[in-house]
Amino acid sequence: MILFGAYSLMCAQTVAEAQSQPLSESQIKAGFLFNFTKFVEWPPEAFADPGVPIVLGIVGDSSVAELLIETAAGKIVNGRAVIVQRFKEGQDPRTCHILFVSSSQERHVPQILERVKGSPILTVSETSGFAQFGGMINFTVEGNKVRLEINLDATARARLKISAKVIAVARLVTGEPQGGKS
């Protein structure tokens, strides 16, 4: 009784914040990836014409891929459809706008980054040190939450504008002295 009294009291004070529903790690990552389509501005040359969809590329095995496909189905962002494309080893990923490299491809990260270097592609991964070594956004898990690390030097080099909303929830990191992967 006392406890329940205490609850109702405290509930009254509690603001409903955050966590509207339980999500798995992959769901959260997929949610972030989809959100990036809304909060990243690509240079004009990234889209050949106004009808070109935003392409979310995925390299490697990940359940994030399935979730993204389901999430992106039928969605329009800034007047563009969002499509999800999986890339196999050896395929040229430069046709996409966001490239997610899953942890299963960790050791290919340097080659993949080398390949997209100079293209206006937002590179995202979940491997430690990704954003320090030339990648742009990295997912880390801290205290049971998914965190973002973002390297703004790298995004600037790719001529991407990242919304302050993304930056607000991310931790800024800088590249290694050598200036990223090369």
Binding site: E17, A18, Q19, S20, Q21, P22, L23, S24, E25, Q27, I28, A30, G31, F32, F34, N35, F39, E66, L67, E70, T71, A72, K75, V141, N144, K145, V146, R147, L148, K165, V166, A168, V169
Partner: peptide
Amino acid sequence: RAQQSKPDLSDISLDTLANTEITSVS
């Protein structure tokens, strides 16, 4: 999987994502 509950991930705000516990409830 079709029968599992599927939240619409496209609708969740960045703030919410950043503050969501990775729960195992789902």
